[in-house]
Amino acid sequence: MSEHDTKSEKEPNSPERRRFIGAATAAAGLAIAPGVMLYEVAHGRPEEQAASSAVRWGMLVDATQCATGCDDCVSACSTENGWTPVAESRHPKQAPQWIRKLELQDPLTQMETNLPMMCQHCADAPCVDVCPTGASFKRADGIVLVNRHTCIGCRYCMMACPYKARSLVHESLNDTQLADVPRGMGCVEACTLCVQKIDRGDGNTACAEACTAAGHNALLFGDMNDPESEISKRLRELPTKQVRADLNLNLGVRYHGI
């Protein structure tokens, strides 16, 4: 220590001093207490690096925390991805919907359950199986997407999806798309797990951010392949279900409290 101090007094910009400061900062970031991180390590990868199968993005929906009457996740998705909220659409029955809020009631007990429903990012996705052009595909990190360059709008995938997660864009969007989210007439679309945000290194989706901001904490997004990630820890602790688990699709979205 004293050696470092004397050196830094003599030469303020010496490489030794820089190394020492660097090491000190790194230590401050990591070792607050054993097992406690000062900051969440972002999953950002360099922009020239392809998405990797070492990661599997997923979401844990805690239906016990999801509030009645709240649709903050839905409006956050619409804002982030540029789709018109269904209530504002001129044709609500055919308006694209990437995520929707379900309020369910048990007919016997009257118990109410709230949950958001969206593309479940199936590991064995029926939409990918049926697509005649290969436009429906699963990215290496588990995100199921539509390549709009090859989608012909046949809508087979919409029929195949057990979760009614996909929509066709029926009308011209007249340049109202967001720069980060290309989408257009004649193509099928669905939840992308905010792929533009993931690739930017945000490490979270717009819906989960909004839910947390509203204080409900019903949505947790993360890497299900990383045993140390928050989502993996919660999945180890909580009883969770896959919707229509009987179909054996290995879903990327898991529900607690349903």
């Binding site: 044709h91 308006a95 009308e171 969007l173 007249n174 340049d175 109202t176 798309q177 967001l178 720069a179």
Partner: peptide, 27 residues
């Protein structure tokens, strides 16, 4: 530009309303 925005990011103020929302101009 059937799918891609013709404008740089963050210039939404200049976007016209689309077919879905044209009737909501006032709102």
């Amino acid at each position: 530009f059937e799918c891609h925005s013709t404008k740089p990011k963050g210039s939404m103020a200049m976007h016209p309303l689309n077919a879905e929302t044209a009737h909501l101009k006032h709102a």
